[in-house]
Computed example of a mutant assay.
Amino acid sequence: MTTAERAVVGRAPVMVVLRGLGLGDLLMVVPALRALRRSHPGHRIVLAAPARLAPLMPLIGAVDEVLDVSGPGPVPAGAPPDIAVNLHGRGPQSVTALRRTGARTLLTHAHPDFPDVRGPSWRSDAHEVRRWCDLLGRYGIAADPADLALRPPPSWESVPARPAPVIVHPGAADPARRWPPERFALTAVALRQAGHEVVITGDAGERALAERVASLACLPERSVLAGRTGLRRLARLVARARLVICGDTGVAHLATALATPSVVLFGPVSPALWGPPHGPHVALWAGRSGDPHGDRPDEGLLEIGVREVLDAAVNLLEVGVR
């Protein structure tokens, strides 16, 4: 960027968008972020979100800067932005944080604590992607809920030497959404016996869980990639995988965004609210709803058996949707 271009950027009006949540939460607002980019091409869009998500911004193509924010705020925006957009939640914390930025215009849902804010009502039965597209629609900004795909750089299209793996991702932020490791292991055994390369992914905090699954499945140590892949490398791995098997967590949304077939195990939350759209994805759910932040595996999640998961996996692998 030239000096003149930097000067223009410095004078551009700023839009601050709050989404201080995790990987899956970010991917659910990609259509909304792109809609904001299209509707405000002259603004500098600053996303208030965890800094660890920054590697995905080039694949989204709508954000100019990431402001490191976890949770509903505070949002240290510096000079008052021209527009603040609440893609975080219904409030009141997120609404308060954005009002404190001094933004001239605030786009958010209505909340009884803020009678002067004229936003749409919060719908608890709306799919998470649709929720934020509908919010912007009420403010005259058209967003396409189907615009979820990430745009990998051309260099990712090179054919790697190793065969495309099946990814087994046993972790999730809360125990309520974690299928038992023994069942993940049995699934991995069957897939490896069928001739598929299986790798176990997760973050650094899930390394022990991944190692347990690999040990139960008698997988070699090289199969455990948990804690060894940054977000960008994980995205590239998912992009070339034959299949992803996981719970209701961020990697499931990454598979959707990269058009990688997936089998996603839902427990306390219906896939009608957080599940993948139609396509090469199978969402398994026993029909129960519960506490997604519970401290033990959800009873509905435990109703999903290994055979059910394997049947879905084999069907996707045999169809060859890749």
Score class of each variant (00 low, 15 high):
118 R>F: 09
220 P>V: 11
276 P>D: 01
15 M>E: 01
123 R>N: 14
314 V>W: 10
267 G>E: 08
135 L>K: 01
184 F>P: 10
289 S>E: 14
204 A>G: 13
97 A>S: 10
109 H>C: 09
9 V>W: 12
88 H>P: 08
24 G>E: 05
273 L>Y: 12
121 S>H: 14
159 V>T: 13
279 G>R: 12
10 G>D: 15
211 E>V: 14
260 T>S: 02
98 L>Y: 01
102 G>E: 09
84 A>S: 07
28 M>C: 13
308 E>R: 15
65 E>N: 07
130 R>G: 09
318 E>A: 14
277 P>C: 07
80 P>N: 05
77 A>K: 01
229 T>E: 13
146 A>K: 02
40 H>P: 10
93 Q>I: 13
200 I>S: 01
268 P>N: 06
313 A>I: 00
292 P>N: 06
143 A>I: 06
113 D>I: 06
22 G>F: 10
149 A>C: 14
291 D>L: 08
319 V>E: 13
87 L>N: 04
54 A>C: 11
16 V>C: 06
10 G>C: 11
58 P>F: 11
110 A>D: 12
96 T>A: 12
297 P>N: 04
197 E>H: 10
19 R>K: 10
81 P>N: 09
268 P>H: 03
48 A>T: 07
177 R>N: 06
152 P>K: 00
124 S>Q: 10
68 D>K: 06
222 R>I: 11
165 P>D: 08
224 V>N: 03
251 V>D: 02
230 G>H: 07
238 V>E: 02
37 R>W: 08
320 G>K: 01
149 A>K: 13
265 L>E: 03
200 I>L: 11
180 P>G: 09
41 P>S: 04
273 L>G: 03
170 P>A: 03
100 R>K: 15
56 L>G: 03
132 W>C: 05
214 A>G: 08
35 A>S: 08
53 L>G: 01
219 L>Q: 03
239 A>P: 15
45 I>L: 13
56 L>R: 05
12 A>W: 05
50 P>N: 08
69 V>R: 02
29 V>A: 02
311 D>E: 12
27 L>K: 02
117 V>T: 14
193 Q>S: 14
191 L>M: 07
212 R>L: 15
239 A>N: 13
232 R>I: 14
120 P>S: 08
30 V>H: 07
96 T>R: 15
52 R>V: 13
28 M>P: 08
260 T>K: 00
311 D>W: 07
232 R>T: 13
106 L>V: 09
